[in-house]
Every structure is written in C-alpha cells, then in structure tokens.
C-alpha cells in the first residue's frame, strides 16, 4: 500500500492552531497550561498530552530588515525507518502498511528509550499512566477512511492528506512557485531526511529557520547501542556460565587423577 502522508505548507498556515485543538479533541487529551513566555507559542515543546503544536519562531537575519516570523506545525514525523521502533524493548511501536508509526499503549512500559532514540525527541513520558505518547497520524481515523483530525480541520488548506508520491509532486510544484515569488530558499522537508519522513513540509526558508534539524540523524550512541552492544555483547554472560560449568566438571575429574587438593592448599 502506498504511504499516506500529511503535507504541511508553511506558506499557507495562519497559525490559527485549529489543528492543535482538533488533535486534543480527537485524542481526548486534557489541556496543558504552560506559563506565558513572551510569544504566541502555547507550549515550549510537544508533551504527553499535546501531540502537536504550532511553533512561533522569530528571526532577525539582517538587522536592517524586519523580523521574520515563522510558524510551523510540529509533531511526530513518522519516519519511514523509525529509530523508536527499533529501540523499543517491548515491541510496542509498529508501523502501519501506509506509514503511520503507532504505539500500543498496553505494551508500553514507560522506559523512554524511544524518547531519546528519536532524532526529534518527540515521544514524551506521561507520568499518570507510566507510558510514552506521541502523534498517531490518526491511524484510527485513517483506517476508517477519514483524514487525520488536524488535516480535516485546517481552514486554509495548509494541511493536506493523501498519497505520499502525489503530495510530493504537489510540494515540488509549490516550492517552484514559492522560489519564483519571493522565497528563494523555499524547500521541501521530509523527502530525503532520515531516509524519508511520512510527514512532508513545504518551507519558505531553510529548515533551521523553522527549528528543524537541517540534517537529522539517529544519535550515534543509540546506533552503537542497538547495533553492537545489544546483539553481541551480552554473550559474555552465557560464556562465563558455560566456563564455570566446564571447570566445575574438569576440576573434579582432574582432582581424581592428580589426587585431592590438600586441605590447606593446592598441592
């Protein structure tokens, strides 16, 4: 099955945060009230009860020019090759055949390995349930033929939902248009990053102006841990047990041959 994706077009977003509300509504998440930080952003980062946020980012590249004010919807990127899925010791994270990375909260034990394996640190720990939560790409809606809550509610068409290849074409056209109309740095995000994300972005500027990692990578500590330590290193333990068992037998056989150890010592 082809991947079904959200395409988010920054240039059409008015930062109304309808998606944030729709997400809370569909997922039945309680409000999380954070203190005012001097800008319009409601939450500093996604949290266990807020799967998606609109970030408000102010940039002043050239002091002679005005401040540029960027909005961006931020949530789980649903990587096509998700690191969180690999590190989960419970197999609680899986990928649907259309590309949503979802969690089985009955299996989740709250170890937070996924939080720190994620290049975006998206999964967040929810203390009251001892689980780690994140955006589900509304797989429960999509599997029933609906669009994700955020995409359904978007009034400006900044969020679209559909076939990934089709949306990529649309994004490329849009980037071409933006580049020709005053946004020379306009770019697509999510096409190639981390081997492809199942969330596509059309950005009016380079990713760093939107608080996104320019070249996201799964942290080296995590790959070392997963690819080397976990599969191979543990074999030392059965080796020690087997060695002791062998020695237990051979020492007693050889003791019979060479005579018992003297009470006080070896010989």
């Amino acid at each position: 099955m082809a991947n079904l994706t959200n395409l988010y077009d920054v240039s059409k977003c008015t930062a109304c945060r309808g998606c944030q509300v729709a997400c809370k509504d569909w997922n039945q998440l309680p409000a999380v009230i954070e203190p005012f930080r001097g800008n319009y952003q409601t939450h500093e980062d996604t949290n266990a009860d807020t799967y998606t946020i609109i970030k408000f980012i102010e940039h002043e590249d050239d002091p002679a020019e005005d401040v540029t004010w960027n909005f961006i919807k931020y949530q789980c990127m649903h990587c096509l090759d998700p690191a969180c899925m690999k590190v989960c010791p419970q197999g609680a994270i899986s990928q649907t055949n259309w590309g949503a990375v979802i969690k089985d909260y009955d299996k989740c034990i709250g170890c937070q390995y996924c939080t720190y394996a994620c290049p975006f640190e998206i999964p967040k720990y929810r203390k009251r349930d001892d689980i780690v939560t994140k955006c589900t790409l509304c797989y429960d809606r999509v599997e029933e033929g609906l669009t994700p809550a955020c995409a359904r509610t978007c009034p400006t068409g900044a969020l679209q939902f559909g076939d990934r290849d089709e949306l990529l074409e649309r994004a490329q056209d849009r980037v071409k248009f933006l580049r020709a109309n005053g946004f020379p740095n306009a770019t697509i995000y999510g096409k190639l990053e981390l081997g492809g994300l199942n969330k596509l972005y059309v950005l009016t500027d380079t990713p760093d102006k939107f608080d996104l990692p320019v070249n996201p990578k799964v942290p080296g500590q995590i790959t070392f841990w997963q690819n080397w330590v976990q599969p191979y290193f543990g074999w030392l333990i059965p080796l020690a047990l087997a060695g002791s068992a062998v020695s237990f037998v051979t020492t007693r056989i050889l003791a019979g041959k060479h005579g018992e150890h003297a009470e006080g010592g070896h010989e």
Partner: peptide, 22 residues
C-alpha cells in the same frame, strides 16, 4: 548524556555480570 547512558549501562551490566558469574 542520557543517550550515552544506555550503552554504558548495558556494557557495565554485562561486564559486571560476567565477573560476578566467574
């Protein structure tokens, strides 16, 4: 730092367990 701790905890656990068995 948290990320470094995952492989460290595992390596130290295996080494310690190896030594403890012996």
């Amino acid at each position: 730092l948290v990320r470094v701790c995952y492989p460290i905890h595992d390596i130290a656990m295996v080494l310690a367990t190896f030594m403890v068995c012996m």
